[in-house]
């Protein structure tokens, strides 16, 4: 397995506040990684930095050996934690948009998933509920054959039944040589699919282990360990 994300001494600051502090980690392809940590620990900042939405203050980050830029954006499929599609557009317009800009996007896959979810491509984004918007965003993001998927709170705004669909969508659609990084608070829901877990605490990497190691060494589930490590 080759390294897809290499991050060395990454520091990100918002004004005087340090969001990521000398953060170093390597993620390999073919893995599903859980990025776990309490609110404000730096999970979203890390994902946004990899997506190119935030400029790093210091350190080095490469994706598939490339420095962050246009080349890395063409192989990274990013799902933010908030609605980000223009509300005046229709679902079909967004499929056309993705199809125009991402060479690894498969519109057929997107239409099939929308049909399963009973979402009409003719629907306007602003007419959809928050949960349905999130599903549409996930459908489009997962319809790409990317090298790296960055999913920030993919199940944050949806009901438990929809969470199962989202997990299934992630598992059945990601390229097997790709790496999936999932940032979430809903650890119990994703625990079963994670290969590796990275705990972030106060902008630093607190722990990075395989899911099996955590269970064997600690005799606890990932959720249990999370509660123990980050107990208030």
């Amino acid at each position: 397995m080759s390294v897809i994300v290499e991050c060395k001494d990454l520091t990100v600051k918002y004004g005087k506040k340090v969001a990521l502090n000398n953060f170093s980690v390597e993620f390999e392809e073919g893995r599903i990684v859980g990025l776990l940590g309490p609110n404000g620990s730096g999970k979203t900042t890390f994902i946004k930095t990899l997506s190119g939405l935030i400029t790093k203050s210091a350190g080095n980050v490469t994706i598939a050996g490339e420095k962050l830029g246009t080349a890395t954006k063409s192989i990274v499929s990013y799902l933010p934690e908030r609605p980000y599609f223009p509300s005046s557009m229709r679902v079909k317009d967004m499929i056309d948009f993705f199809n125009d800009f991402y060479t690894d996007f498969n519109p057929q896959t997107a239409y099939e998933m929308l049909e399963t979810l009973k979402i009409s491509p003719k629907d306007k984004i602003k007419a959809l509920s928050k949960g349905t918007r999130e599903k549409v965003q996930l459908v489009l993001v997962m319809s790409r054959s990317a090298k790296l998927y960055l999913l920030d709170e993919p199940m944050g705004g949806v009901d438990p039944a929809a969470r199962d669909f989202i997990l299934k969508t992630i598992l059945t659609n990601y390229s097997k040589d790709a790496c999936v990084i999932i940032s979430t608070h809903l650890i119990q829901d994703v625990e079963q699919v994670l290969d590796e877990v990275a705990f972030i605490k106060e902008g630093r990497l607190a722990m990075f282990k395989s899911a099996d190691e955590i269970r064997e060494e600690n005799g606890k589930s990932i959720d249990g360990l999370f509660r123990a490590v980050f107990a208030c």
Binding site: G52, L53, T70, A71, Y84, F85, P86, F101
Partner: peptide, 10 residues
Amino acid sequence: DEGYLMHTLP
């Protein structure tokens, strides 16, 4: 918010 889409385009 829409910048999340535009700035992640290649």
